[in-house]
Nucleic acid binder design. Structure first.
Lengths: 336, 336
DNA sequence: AACGTTGCTTACAACGTTGTAGAAACCTGA
DNA sequence: TCAGGTTTCTACAACGTTGTAAGCAACGTT
């Protein structure tokens, strides 16, 4: 029931290669021959065997998107855009969950492919430039993190500037005891470090001293971590009047913890997030955030990767940045 | 820089097939031969070419998971579990977004694979049994929907019983004007229809009349649709004292709309959802819901599919059901 | 009439892997 | 020592596709 070029060729009375030529849109095929072949293809419902084609061509037409976790909404939304952008260019996307650990990320970066994929869009949490160096020649685009002197292209937003801008927004509302949630012992250049730097810079701009007790770490960036960090901040006695959470899920967790503590948002504590996930547009209160242009990020990443795959693999790595927008909502400005 | 079996064979001084045997864990290889081969593999950093292996074996080792939208948290969470369950059995998962339209779903079901995938786990919104009939022989497992007399295995939870149970929960709290949000003109057997049936049955159990004005349709099941439907219900004058939303994102939208209308949850209106997504555990208030065992669903689906792929493809379709649990939280029971 | 040109088609040989069948080496027990 | 088995290894032929090179018409040009 599954047919091959040979079957089509026999039915149409031509050679196998002629059928191949028709399938691949080769120009010099007589119209009546082409018609006969196409008829045979339709009758047999022929579909090319991609494994064979890939074997022959050395390409698979599949790119992978490796993200730490799919049920972090930011990555899910990003994945959606990547799939769409890739489809426009004729690529299929294989989505891979790394889990975020260094070992798993190494496996993902090195292992997925091995001839199954042509390239990789990779959003690393823990990996460093050294880890990436070992990946001989797999075309790769990094997302969201700046791996210093990394061997690969990457697409990012200016995390420092964005964090600085949203912290300045909190300052502009008259807040002075501004906490941060989400610091991590990640490699230099990772989002956590950059956003912390932007936070610190904004405080400095405003002449507010950096108070270590107001900076809460979060092992992961889930809602539960945000809630736990917020509770920790509140019970430590260093009562903040604003919190900048390094992503929206942390912020949603923080909102929950503030609610449980009987504090009003934004009257008692203003809350800001980062990523602009859909939840934040419907939470109570709605969430002030930095909205990165996810569609642009996805498109740039796919285009860069396609360029690497089909073009020059040895060109020096490129770095593109996507725009973002400060999006104030109720969690800092109150009911509108 | 990319090596083949032949290169390894030459280096180890054995035949190509012996290297193949080592790679595939064939038993009868002398220990010293095996050691020599493994050394050569390590030295050359050899990785098998999957396209060639697949061509030879007629398998790809990849299964697809087709869902309507990845950024609906329920599907993201499900995808996570499917990827994990598949990995345990040595399969890779290709995640495909259909968008939910009938035409796109047809393309996804028919087109993805064509030798790229061995089978498909499919969560259809719009497709009917007729559409599926044309997919000659692609092993497939359907999720969450009962496509009557469908030609494929499926995994589901008892939507009618679950909806009935959660509606009964609302009745048990003394509510009488219980609205439903999420009805759709989908095919018989789709989730929307089944959950509506369970809702109606519970009302009937309690001797409460079914009031069409309390049933609000939702074109999609996003937060925005839930909020819009809730506003519609409130402005129509038929003030409900409880709402059963057919999924959690609808419910989160409804919570938002109720908040904007100045109504308290659950004192004025109790709200219940369906799916137990993570958001609902951190929303204000937390969300009463039906928690399907997503991990079990994923595992059953993967195992059924693996069975189809490696075993009998003509066996009659099987239907497995996964457990669920009513999970009361603040949105119906108030602060604990 | 001989010639090159162009358009269309084909045979053949890969791509890198594994199944089959069988050869060679090695055991075992009489 | 040898028959009969088992272990270990190998040569060969696929899997379905496409690139290469070459063949064969039909055409226009000299």
């Amino acid at each position: 029931m599954r047919h091959r070029l040979k079957d089509v060729a026999e039915r149409a009375g031509v050679s196998v290669k002629t059928v191949s030529n028709v399938v691949n849109g080769y120009l010099h095929v007589r119209p009546d021959t082409r018609a006969r072949v196409e008829e045979a293809i339709a009758e047999l419902n022929y579909r090319p065997n991609l494994s064979a084609r890939n074997l022959r061509k050395g390409r698979t037409g599949v790119i992978a998107l490796a993200v730490p976790e799919l049920d972090i909404p930011y990555f899910a939304e990003l994945a959606r855009h990547v799939v769409a952008a890739a489809a426009e260019l004729g690529w299929t996307v294989l989505i891979d969950q790394t889990g975020g650990g260094p070992e798993q990320e190494r496996v993902a970066a090195a292992g997925i492919g091995d001839h199954l994929i042509d390239g990789l869009i990779f959003s690393p949490l823990a990996l460093t430039a050294d880890d990436l160096a070992g990946l001989d020649g797999m075309p790769m685009v990094l997302l969201g993190e700046r791996v210093d002197h990394g061997p690969a292209d990457h697409v990012l937003i200016d995390n420092v500037a964005a964090a600085r801008e949203i912290t300045a927004h909190l300052v502009g509302l008259g807040r002075r005891r501004i906490a941060a949630i989400g610091s991590q012992r990640t490699p230099e250049g990772a989002s956590a470090r950059l956003r912390l730097a932007g936070y610190a810079a904004a405080l400095d701009d405003a002449g507010i001293g950096y108070d270590e007790r107001l900076v809460a770490p979060a092992p992961a960036w889930h809602r539960a971590d945000g809630a736990a960090a917020m509770r920790e901040l509140l019970s430590s006695g260093s009562r903040p009047d604003a919190v900048f959470c390094f992503n929206d899920t942390l912020a949603l967790g923080a909102l929950r913890a503030l609610h449980e503590a009987g504090l009003r948002v934004p009257q008692d504590v203003a809350v800001a997030g980062f990523d602009d996930i859909e939840d934040g547009r419907f939470s109570v209160p709605t969430l002030t955030t930095i909205a990165p242009d996810k569609e642009r990020i996805a498109r740039l990443a796919v285009e860069l990767l396609a360029g690497r795959i089909t073009g020059d693999r040895t060109a020096p790595p490129r770095e593109l940045s996507a725009p973002y927008r400060l999006t104030p909502r109720e969690s800092t400005e109150g009911q509108s």
